[in-house]
């Protein structure tokens, strides 16, 4: 599934040149749809065959959807060739990079075990930086403040379970007393 849509993402980033690149973006989406359809159909062929009154098993709906995706993949090719996608504005790649980076950073920090507050604070800082707020360290600091508040509110107010690191364990300790 991810391989098909990674293609879509690549199509968008290539589309900064208005005339020629527009086709490429649309064609990349079509390619993504074809890949996705093939993936679904292939997955369907791996299911074991069952005897049932319905005469159709869990593979029937995936086959229908794969067929639909393929049909609209063809339609997408035509849309791309006829330039019938709406006009796209030039893209601010740096800003998009910061936002994607913000999420990647949070995912990485959470897997690294630093806990919710630092990870969410970093996400907040990167995102604010991406939308034009400088300097980065200040935005991250604000973010850590915001997420510390959110942590206390949701962990101790609504007992939502959030990933804990050293900072969170310290705060939890304060609340236990």
């Amino acid at each position: 599934m991810s391989s098909g849509h990674a293609n879509e993402g690549a199509g968008a980033s290539r589309s900064s040149d208005p005339n020629r690149a527009r086709d490429l973006g649309g064609l990349a989406i079509a390619a993504g749809l074809f890949l996705f359809a093939a993936l679904i159909a292939w997955d369907g062929t791996t299911y074991p065959v069952r005897q049932s009154y319905a005469q159709f098993g869990p593979e029937i709906f995936p086959y229908l959807i794969a067929a639909g995706l393929a049909v609209f993949g063809v339609a997408t090719v035509f849309m791309a060739l006829r330039n019938s996608f709406p006009e796209r504005e030039p893209m601010n790649l740096t800003a998009v990079g910061w936002i994607v980076g913000a999420l990647v950073a949070k995912i990485g920090l959470l897997y690294g075990g630093v806990g919710f507050i630092v990870a969410a604070g970093t996400l907040f800082g990167f995102a604010a930086r991406g939308l034009g707020r400088r300097p980065l360290w200040f935005a991250i600091l604000v973010g850590i403040g915001v997420s510390a508040f959110l942590y206390v509110l949701f962990r101790h107010g609504l007992s939502l379970s959030l990933p804990a690191g050293p900072v969170e364990r310290f705060i939890d300790g304060l609340f236990r007393r």
């Binding site: 936002i99 999420l103 969410a120 996400l123 907040f124 995102a127 604010a128 935005a139 973010g143 939502l160």
Partner: peptide
């Protein structure tokens, strides 16, 4: 806008992590 959207992202990820319990 920077604060608004940074806040939305923080809140969005909080809800998802909190409910799913995994990164």
């Amino acid at each position: 806008r920077p604060w608004l959207y940074a806040g939305i992202l923080t809140f969005a990820t909080l809800g998802i992590v909190g409910a799913q319990g995994s990164a």
